[in-house]
Design a protein around this nucleic acid. Structure first.
Length: 823
RNA sequence: GCCCGGGUGGCGGAACUGGUCUACGCGGCGGCCUUAAAAGCCGCUGUCCCGCGAGGGACGUGUGGGUUCGAAUCCCACCCCGGGCACCA
């Protein structure tokens, strides 16, 4: 017998060559082609250096899904591109003086090389980087559509500024008062910035979460982020100055308990209100301190309450009481109206403030369990309010009071959101230029669409100076106003890279189109994405922005879908020794080393075998060896079995159920069991680990029964194993399958289990006495209850435990178990 | 503090809607092959107890209760780990 050695270095390049030469995974746009469509998409990578183990995991998951969908007969779109603009490449440029394009393109080449080496079934004809003018031309086009629709606008705003990266940040990029990217504390600045009006879509972004199949935790995170609160706007009037101050409250039922009024330090009227009260200096000092304080210091919930009396009063619209006005930093300008009514008896923050400033506290909601300590935030009947509301349950009173306010013109029902508009401009170089020209006479003028793209000019000094490095490219900045022809200046800010990635999935559908961003008819063939796969770290940012873009573009008539991603899967991290891999910890496993040592099939298969893909998993060098052994065993068994030539005819169990007996029948059954198991694991859920375990079991069974089975049944079992393994380890599977059958596994339909071979002739019945397993007996699968009870009672160890007892109850689970209850 | 996940052998993990706890893999132990090794192959492997043995028993899914003929699975309380949110009125 010839020596067979599993050598991935021989096998893998050979099949990669076939797939590249034949462009196997390319799928042309063809709305008329028959068959179901499946758009399987993994979040596009940020190309920096080379791929890490997380990339290997997420693309292994995506590729397994893509392969499975193809094999069950769908037309699968599985594209690849690069999120190529961004700060790391620019920071590298600042350090080395090298153009970010060069380092980016070098990284892209390495990513591409490794993706091919991993044997990913990608349609390379649709590849692009978001930094290519051919792509960002259309990013600019989308910006202009939003601008013309009033969904992109410029305004001066208090923004978050990162002093290290020297740029403004979106709210979503500020974590605990620190820059998400570099960790430095952000500062507040007043700057003119570009925004997308995502808040217009808050309600729809919230409501449509119910229409998509996403992990519950991601939906919850988005819901929290949007932060919809129902309540009322209530107008409090400052009689002395004759100014109305509306406040937002979720608790209009507690209006009678308001004992003071608080404004945010940023509120534009604060200083004016204090004027002439003799408190100006104190107020001014407080406001200045609050504004320069970092978010970190100000944001802490357990911080003692501070504030200053403004020397003015407002009138409570429900009872005419005069409430003292304060300025305090626990009230935020960005939320609601920047002013609140304070009800210390029923709000913890107001309570803390009232205690610190010795303000009155009046209970207006009784505790049904007996009034305890204040503040009380639960429900109960109203007290100390007005005769018509006292005694009414507060939930009911809430509606009644809002109705009353509405009738009196003093307020109305209202909804407030935590979500803010998306700040998209960045004072950095390596991003998509904003296609706007500022003209002294015409104002903000969009660059005409036929002049797109506004290309990013080459510069030599990338260092940030508090304004965009692009401002130094004077020849580029100076331009003509597209409207009046006069001298004008280009916008020098660039776009947040999240803009680039908010529509890339649309471009994949029609990547070669140079006449338009996409043809709506072509996009209709693929969108929405059937299965989106990526990291949970994008739960809010990217996934919310992409949803907003799709809705806005649909409203503008460019798209026919409301949601970009029908199903979402979020994969867990790969750790090592229980910790996140990082260079400083020295616990990094590089995909390149693993692929080099064991081959791509082992690397991919192991990473899917390690555990449920949605969970974090710890890397183990020994575990890799185990999977490598398994692939080697399967391949060797196949090579051995194929020595007499491939199976002729269909690859089914030869002879069917009738012609099989003994070990042949046992093995054919195992193969059919594996088909059913793997199909369910891939179809219903992402249980790659148990699917691979089932294929291991089948392979072990072939090995164990090697001497007792006929060659045809053995080859059938091995071909089945190879076929089922293909989505996880494509090279070795293709190789083994070809040896066994002479055919290409990816051209074969997914195997069907033969129902006749799934049935068992005998089943094992567990016999319990009082719920404890005492024996096992064999029975026909369709044996009746009486028969099973009789068998159980006859089992020796059951008898031993029934000795001297009376059976009082008999429970039968057909085909599985008998439980005898005895006393 | 609030909202989600999750605690199963020495380890990663299986166990579908309440019905054989620990599949598969790792590690460990023993054996085969070999001059030897590597590779490969075969067997055993939750803990404790009784038995020379075949075998049997008790315990066992973070802790304590409960429901049930029967609980890793359902209910209540608590502990620990991970994640998200957190002065949002």
């Amino acid at each position: 017998m010839a020596e067979h050695r599993y050598d991935p270095k021989q096998i893998e390049p050979r099949w990669q060559q076939v797939w590249a030469d034949e462009r196997t995974w390319e799928v042309p746009n063809d709305p008329d082609a028959p068959g179901e469509r499946s758009y399987v998409l993994v979040m596009l990578p940020y190309p920096s250096g080379e791929p890490h183990i997380g990339h290997l995991k997420v693309y292994s998951v995506g590729d397994a899904v893509a392969h499975f969908h193809r094999r069950i007969g769908r037309r699968v779109l599985n594209p690849m591109g690069y999120d190529a603009f961004g700060l790391p490449a620019e920071n590298h440029a600042i350090r080395t003086g090298q153009h970010p394009r060069e380092s980016t393109d070098r990284s892209i080449a390495e990513f591409r090389r490794q993706f091919r080496e991993w044997g990913m079934s990608i349609d390379w004809s649709r590849e692009f980087g978001t930094h290519e003018p051919r792509y960002y031309r259309w990013t600019q086009w989308i910006f202009l559509q939003l601008f013309k629709a009033g969904l992109a606008y410029r305004k001066e705003a208090a923004v978050k500024w990162c002093p290290v990266d020297q740029t403004v940040l979106a709210n979503e990029q500020v974590i605990d008062g620190r820059c998400e990217r570099c960790g430095s504390e952000v500062e507040a600045r007043q700057l003119e910035q570009w925004f997308f009006r995502i808040t217009d879509y808050a309600d729809r972004l919230l409501a449509d979460l119910d229409t998509i199949d996403w992990p519950a935790n991601v939906k919850t995170m988005q819901r929290n982020w949007i932060g919809r609160s129902e309540g009322a706007e209530v107008v409090f009037r400052c009689e002395e100055l004759g100014i109305d101050y509306p406040v937002f409250t979720t608790r209009p039922d507690t209006l009678f308990g308001a004992t003071f009024f608080v404004m945010a330090p940023e509120h534009p009227d604060v200083l004016r209100l204090a004027e002439g009260t003799g408190r100006e200096e104190e107020v001014r000092a407080y406001v200045n301190r609050a504004l320069t304080e970092s978010n970190q210091e100000r944001g802490a919930a357990d911080k003692p309450k501070t504030g200053v009396f403004l020397g003015r009063y407002v009138t409570n619209p429900v009872n005419g009481e005069k409430l003292p006005m304060y300025v305090a930093d626990y009230v935020l300008m960005e939320y609601g109206t920047g002013a609140i009514m304070a009800v210390p008896a029923h709000d913890e923050r107001d309570f803390a403030f009232a205690q610190a400033f010795d303000l009155p506290i009046r209970r207006v909601v009784a505790d049904p369990d007996g009034d305890g300590e204040l503040p009380y935030t639960g429900d109960g009947p109203l007290v100390n309010s007005a005769p018509e509301f006292d005694g009414m349950h507060n939930r009911e009173a809430l509606r009644a009071i809002v109705d009353w306010l509405d009738r009196e013109g003093k307020g109305h029902a209202s909804v407030s959101y935590r979500l803010r508009d998306w700040l998209l401009s960045r004072q950095r170089y390596w991003g998509c230029p904003i296609p706007i020209v500022t003209c002294p006479s015409c104002g903000l003028v969009p660059v005409p669409e036929d002049q797109l793209p506004v290309e990013l000019p080459d510069i030599t000094d990338y260092a940030p100076k508090g304004r965009s490095p692009l401002a130094a490219a004077e020849d580029w900045v100076r331009t003509e106003c597209p409207s009046c022809g006069g001298p004008a200046e280009r916008e020098t800010d660039t776009m947040d890279t999240f803009v680039d990635s908010s529509w890339y999935f649309l471009r994949y559908c029609d990547a070669a189109n140079d006449e338009a961003a996409w043809d709506p008819k072509v996009v209709a063939e693929w969108m929405p994405v059937d299965q989106y796969i990526g990291g949970v770290e994008h739960a809010i940012l990217h996934l919310l922005y992409a949803r907003f873009f799709v809705k806005a573009l649909a409203d503008l008539g460019h798209l026919d879908v409301q949601e970009p991603f029908s199903r979402l899967f979020t994969q867990g991290m790969i750790t090592r020794d229980g910790a996140k891999m990082s260079k400083s910890k020295g616990n990094v496993v590089s995909p390149r080393e693993i692929v080099d040592r064991y081959g791509a099939d082992t690397a991919r298969c192991y990473i899917l075998f390690i555990g449920p893909p949605e969970h974090d998993a710890d890397w183990s060098d020994e575990g890799v060896e185990g999977v490598h052994r398994f692939l080697g065993r399967l391949w060797r068994l196949a090579a051995e079995a194929a020595e007499d030539g491939p199976i002729r005819g269909d690859v089914v169990a030869p002879g069917g159920r009738e012609g099989l007996q003994g070990a042949d029948l046992q093995l054919a059954r195992k193969a059919n069991w594996a088909i059913e198991k793997v199909t369910a694991d891939l179809g219903d859920r992402f249980a790659f680990n148990t699917a691979i375990a089932a294929i291991m079991e089948l392979t072990n069974e072939v090995s164990r029964l090697r001497e007792q089975t006929s060659p045809d049944v053995r080859r059938f079992a091995l071909a089945t194993a190879a076929s089922l393994l293909f989505p996880f380890a494509p090279h070795v599977s293709a190789d083994a399958y070809e040896r066994l059958t002479g055919r290409r596994v990816w051209e074969e339909p997914w195997p069907d289990a033969d129902p006749a071979l799934l049935e068992q002739d005998v089943v094992e019945i567990v016999c319990q006495v009082n719920g404890k397993v005492r024996d096992r007996v064999s029975a026909a699968p369709d044996a009746g209850d009486e028969e099973l009870i009789a068998l159980a009672k006859a089992a020796p160890n059951v008898q031993a435990h029934l000795d001297g007892k009376q059976v009082v109850k008999e429970i039968v689970v057909p085909g599985k178990l008998v439980n005898l209850v005895a006393r």
